[in-house]
Each structure stands twice: as structure tokens, then as C-alpha cells.
Nucleic acid binder design. Structure first.
Lengths: 234, 234
DNA sequence: AAGTGGTCTAGACCACTTT
DNA sequence: AAGTGGTCTAGACCACTTT
């Protein structure tokens, strides 16, 4: 494990364990260097990581402080995989609705940067958080990169599966979204009236080598899902 | 100006100038070190910055590559101040609807971590992008931190103003959002039928010293606003 | 003036991919 | 085996805030 990851994790755990109020000052950098017995650069890198994740903030000349903890019931829109805060997991589950191999439409081929003749796994699922319907998800995977899927696999975490079995490293994603209304089919599956508002999200996932392997379209249940995003500005 | 910011900016400008297709490989690190005459650490920091902003991606052992450029008409949800990509600005404007000094409600006082007796500037505005209604915004500023506002100021960029005049450095923000429907008042102002879907956002802005100074509530026009978010995963 | 976080360097060495 | 990005160190010096 990398040193700066280890230091970041230890500092984070200490914050979660002692639950200091927002604005509490942590030890200064010199002390952290001595305490963790690493170089200045390593401490700074660990702190930068915690700052980006919204756990602390740093003010030059003043100190390192604990940031406000997030509201409950809100899910991180960036790393949303069914958890709220990193501390306490929220039980989530998945129901598979459809699994088939298809040829891509022009739109799908474009997003996945693939040929129209390439085989594509089409996966339709409903995702639940705390036993409430959270969203309807239609995903397309390039079979050349994800050679095999079955009902059991898609009822769990597909990402964990393809990471472990096919050794695919997930690199980054592009997320496009807007607010719209539900058509008949989606409304039925989300158990909402037709025309209900929804957060409509299209997301393309790339491997760490920059290859798009998953194009997903999601309709979120507007009553059961709330989100948060923390930003660094300035 | 900091060296790594300068290097990042130069590399970015070069990418925008030559518009290479996604996946194009940039010069390797040794070359960048020589070319910009800075240390390895400085190059790495510049590249990390560009990676976080979605402009490049790096693959250990392989190279540094240009990332897909973003779709037009989508606005960055993180740094959304009325622009799309960093390259080409989109004309945006603001119409002031209301400006007053009030005492905070319990909710406002809680979000701004202030006393119920403190003076608060209440600002209501409509924001336009390319002459289309983009969102309705109700903001609350702590008068102790933002001592003066008038109609002219709030018709422009309040953030630029308070940065320059009151020397407030904006540090970070917490954004909470969900999909809901418009009530009569908001619908009228957004020129949409009552009950239309909307993206409802609450955002708290903090100074770099960690003090909340602005609590804003926004209703986005569901037909005129689309967003994107780029994530680093793995 | 003292304290605290941030930048920057040269260079050794490690991790991963490509040839 | 060679190439390429990433980690880590010691230490000098800078930028900003607090006393």
C-alpha cells in the first residue's frame, strides 16, 4: 500500500473515531511528519487527498481543519455506488430485469466508440437502496472487453466482477444529466405515475487505458434519491 | 504565478490549440521536464491538475493521453458559473428580482451557522444562459461577512464583487440536490406550468477560512439546463 | 516576529506497460 | 530489456496568518 494512502486512511479513521466538530484544528504538518515518520511531500499528498474528498480543509498560514460532515440520506453523486458517507454503508441491492446480446444502435456505437457489428451485452436492472426503488438502469457493455455475463453476475456488482475476473481497471467516467419526465415503461418499473419527474443520467465508463467499456442510461426515482457534491473552489 | 499552474495552463492551451483527437499521446515526462525546465514533481503536479479537470488521463507505464472533449450545451455541474467548456464562454446574464435585509429563519441560521439575530441579505435572481431562463436563485448572505450589496452589484457576479471588494476568498462548497416539482411562484418566474419538474439545489459556500457566507436555493429550468460531471475512479 | 501551510528541486527507486 | 509514469526523501525557501 502506498504511504500517502496509508497516512490519509489513518487520519480519516481518527477523525471518524473522535468525531470532532467542524472547524476543529488537527495537528500541524511538522507534527504529522514526526508522528507518521514520512516526508513533508507524503503528508501534503495525503492531506490533499482528504481535502478533495471533503473531509478536511487547509488554510495556508493557519492550519488544517475538519470539515462539516455530510447530511444523511444524501448519496455522493460522484462516487455513487449505493453508499452515503464513507463510514456507514447503506444496504443496497439489485434486481435483474433483462440480459441479452445485441448489436449496437448508432448512438450506442458512438458512445462506446465501437463498430456497428460488435457484440454488446444489454443489461437492464432496478437498483434499490434501503429496500426503496432507487433507479432504473439500462447498461451496454462491449463484449470484446467484458466477454461474459450471466443473471447471477448482474444481480451483484458488475464492476467488482469485471475488475476481478477480466482484470479491467476502471479509469474514469463522463456523466451527462438533465431533468425530464418518465415514459410509460420506465414509470411502470419505477412504480410511479407516467409523467413523473426524474433525473435522467447518461454515463460512459472508461478503462484506465482510456477505452469506453460501459454506456449506461439511468432514470432515478425522484422521491427516493437525493445527492450531494462537495467542491473545492477558489 | 505558481510554476505548476503555469505549466498546466500551457499544456492545456496547446491541447486546445491543436485539438488532438481523444487518445492522442502527449510528450513523456522526461521531455516535459526538459521542455518546461522544471522538476519532475512540478510536472506531475501540473498533470494531476489537468487529469482532475478531465483534460487528460495518465496510465502508468504507458503514457499521458488526451481525454474526450465534452459535449456542447452541457454545463459543468461542479464549477457551473454559466460556462460550458473552459475554452469558449457562453453568454450569461442575471436579472435581479428582490433585495432585502432580513433575519434568518431557523433553517437559514443553521446552514449559515449564525445567530437568529444576525442581519442577512436576501437576494432573489433569475439567471439566463444564451438568453434562455436557466434557473431561479434565492441566496442568503451573512451581512457580517458581506457588508454591502445593491441592485447593480447583484445584477452582475456577486462572487467577483465580494472577492475584490471585501477580500473574501471562496474556499469550498456543499451542494445538496434532488428532483422535484415547481410550486406556483417558482413556475411563474421560470415561465413554466406549475408542477413542472425541476432540479432543486441547496448550496452552502464557505470562505477559505471555513466560514459559511452564502446559502443558496436554486430551481433549474428543466428544458434549458443540462449538466456534466467528469470523475476519476479506480 | 513566530508559526503554519505550500512550492520546488535533484535524485534514487518502484510499478506498470510495451517491445 | 527498455520505456514510461509514480512514489518518496531531505531540505531550502516562499506565502500567508496569527501573535
Amino acid at each position: 500500500m502506498l504511504k500517502y494512502d496509508e497516512v490519509a486512511q489513518k487520519i480519516e479513521q481518527q477523525i471518524y473515531a473522535t468525531k470532532p466538530v467542524a472547524g476543529t484544528r488537527l495537528a500541524n504538518i511538522e507534527e504529522l511528519i514526526k508522528h507518521y515518520d514520512v516526508s513533508r511531500t507524503t503528508i501534503i499528498k495525503a492531506l490533499d487527498q482528504l481535502e478533495r474528498r471533503g473531509i478536511i480543509y487547509q488554510q495556508q498560514g493557519s492550519g488544517i481543519f475538519v470539515r462539516q460532515s455530510k447530511k444523511n440520506d444524501y448519496i455522493s453523486f460522484i462516487e455513487s455506488h449505493g453508499f452515503t458517507n464513507d463510514q456507514d454503508r447503506i444496504p443496497s441491492s439489485t434486481k435483474a430485469i433483462e440480459l441479452s446480446i445485441i448489436k449496437p444502435t448508432a448512438k450506442i456505437a458512438q458512445e462506446l466508440q465501437c463498430d456497428l457489428s460488435e457484440d454488446i451485452y444489454s443489461v437492464k436492472r432496478i437498483r434499490y437502496v434501503e429496500n426503496n426503488i432507487h433507479c432504473l438502469e439500462q447498461s451496454y457493455y462491449r463484449k470484446s472487453l467484458v466477454p461474459y455475463l450471466n443473471l447471477e453476475i448482474i444481480s451483484g456488482s458488475i464492476f467488482n466482477y469485471i475488475k476481478q475476473v477480466f482484470n479491467i481497471n476502471i479509469g474514469f467516467s463522463d456523466k451527462y444529466f438533465e431533468v425530464t419526465t418518465l415514459d410509460t415503461d420506465s414509470a411502470m418499473l419505477l412504480e410511479l405515475p407516467q409523467g413523473s419527474p426524474t433525473l435522467y443520467v447518461e454515463e460512459i465508463f472508461y478503462t484506465s487505458a482510456g477505452e469506453p467499456f460501459d454506456y449506461s442510461v439511468k432514470h432515478y426515482h425522484y422521491k427516493n434519491s437525493k445527492y450531494f457534491v462537495q467542491s473545492q473552489l477558489g
